[in-house]
């Protein structure tokens, strides 16, 4: 496979995941979909932080099971979660954690085996924490519209202008991804035979350069459009979320789980 095809594959995957996650109708009616985005952002972040802080493998495993249950209740298929999250994380973190089983100093698991108890525990910590944290953040992303997540970040006291930059980046991300994809596809359709290595590098650098140039000019156009609509540098944001009593119950639930996890593994 040529680098053009690989890059097309990489960009397509990015586009597909982004489109899937932003499809507001996909998980409609799920249990988490109805929760106020601010509550979800704060609650899930608290759970991720508790998973990072706890010293108990059992507590992390329990949060992992709870996350899987919440995913099912939110109409997210476990098979999809396994394909998007669990397998890639298992492969990546597994490769990193595997040598630790052998080289971490400690008591052997059995007789003269080179595997140590401490090694197994440290690998389990790494793997379970990574799987649980990524599952939780995926749960947030798949049950909340991206624009709502960005708006909800305001509860973390992020400056408005930073949240607006995040929102605009997210909006133009699709456009730049599509532009890059179009550039590579058009190049592929015009290429006969195999490009030599230096030509491939020149093509890659020139493509990045063209993309940079397009991004810059687009930013100038967007700036002019914003100015023509009255933008003078002050950023305002409509804050139209309204937490219901059930949302506060969810917040209590998230915090209770996070506190329990930290307390169990203190």
């Amino acid at each position: 496979m040529t680098f053009v095809e690989r890059t097309i594959g990489s960009l397509s995957n990015g586009m597909n995941f982004a489109a899937l996650a932003d499809d507001s109708t996909r998980f409609q009616g799920g249990i988490l979909e109805r929760v106020d985005p601010r509550i979800k952002v704060v609650g899930i972040l608290a759970m991720i932080a508790s998973v990072a802080a706890t010293h108990s493998l059992l507590a992390i495993a329990a949060v992992f099971l709870l996350t899987a249950s919440l995913a099912v209740a939110s109409r997210i298929s476990l098979a999809d979660l396994a394909r998007w999250v669990w397998t890639p994380v298992l492969l990546f973190t597994g490769c990193i954690a595997l040598p630790a089983i052998f080289i971490t100093p400690g008591a052997p698991v059995h007789g003269s085996w080179p595997v140590t108890q401490q090694g197994v525990r440290t690998a389990a910590y790494l793997l379970l924490r990574a799987e649980t944290a990524v599952s939780l953040s995926t749960l947030l992303v798949l049950t909340t519209r991206w624009a709502h997540i960005l708006k909800a970040l305001r509860v973390l006291r992020l400056p408005v202008v930073f949240v607006v930059i995040l929102g605009m980046t997210y909006r133009y991300l699709f456009l730049i991804l599509q532009t890059a994809l179009d550039m590579f596809e058009s190049r592929k359709s015009r290429t006969v035979g195999v490009l030599e290595a230096p030509d491939r590098r020149r093509l890659a650098a020139a493509t990045v350069g063209v993309l940079l140039s397009k991004s810059y000019h687009l930013s100038t156009d967007v700036h002019l459009a914003m100015q023509s609509r009255g933008f003078r540098g002050e950023v305002y944001m409509l804050d139209d979320f309204e937490a219901q009593p059930l949302d506060w119950c969810w917040l209590f639930f998230f915090f209770a789980v996070a506190a329990t996890v930290i307390w169990v593994g203190r």
Binding site: F3, S10, L11, I165, Y172, A180, A204, L212, S215, L218
Partner: peptide, 23 residues
């Protein structure tokens, strides 16, 4: 006033660059 669109577009550009496979 140009900071917001310029930084947004460059952030989007940086994001896409990280997806490129370079020979």
């Amino acid at each position: 006033t140009q900071a917001v669109p310029l930084l947004s577009l460059f952030a989007a550009f940086s994001f896409v660059i990280m997806m490129f496979n370079l020979p």
